[in-house]
Amino acid sequence: MPEPLPMPDEALLQTPAQTVGPFFGYALPYSGGPTVRAPWQPDAIRLHGTVFDGGGDPIPDAIVEIWGADAAGRPSTERGVLDRDQHGFSGFGRAAVDRDGLYAFTTIKPGATRAGLAPYLLVTVFARGVLHHLFTRAYFDDEAAANGADPLLSSVDPARRHTLVAVSDAPASYRFDIRLQGEGETVFLDFGLEGRHEGMQR
């Protein structure tokens, strides 16, 4: 008789995701959430865009988070992410979209986290109707050389690559629209956790 396959410890299996639902608006947004870097700082940039559904309509009940490295490409270890020092930079931001699906952050343009990578911000999207959040990355269109050499961008279908690149639309301002489905659908990322095996089914 073959040995039974080792079963993962039931107590240490991934907790499933559920949708953020429609009623997060009085709970998750916080004062200063979209302001990762004070706008008066000389290195502040704006990252903004619209979240669209598969019908091309803006989604009015999505919430977007960004997480990025500092200008040297290092994760910030400054304490006080929610109660932020106006002179500091914590790397994390959260912005609910408005009725027209628009979100906007002020932050800094991060440095590349290691040689050979293009700089980017990690972007997470939650919404009513999205059962499990979606990750993507916002690269920058004025980093053409670095983007051309970036391993993740290079691995993406060239026809869809532009969906990962924020477009410079004013001085120190980048537009990054997010399309959950359909024409121009944003490339969403799997960090190896999507198909996480959960043992046998009952």
Binding site: D53, G54, G55, D57, I59, A127, R128, G129, V130, L131, L134, R137, P151, L152, S155, V156, R160, L180, Q181, G182, E185, T186, V187, F188, L189, D190, F191, G192, E194
Partner: peptide, 14 residues
């Protein structure tokens, strides 16, 4: 979920 799920497979990223 009808208009809010991606139809492309997610891209594997390290």
């Amino acid at each position: 979920t009808r208009l809010r799920h991606p139809t492309h497979e997610l891209v594997r990223a390290d």
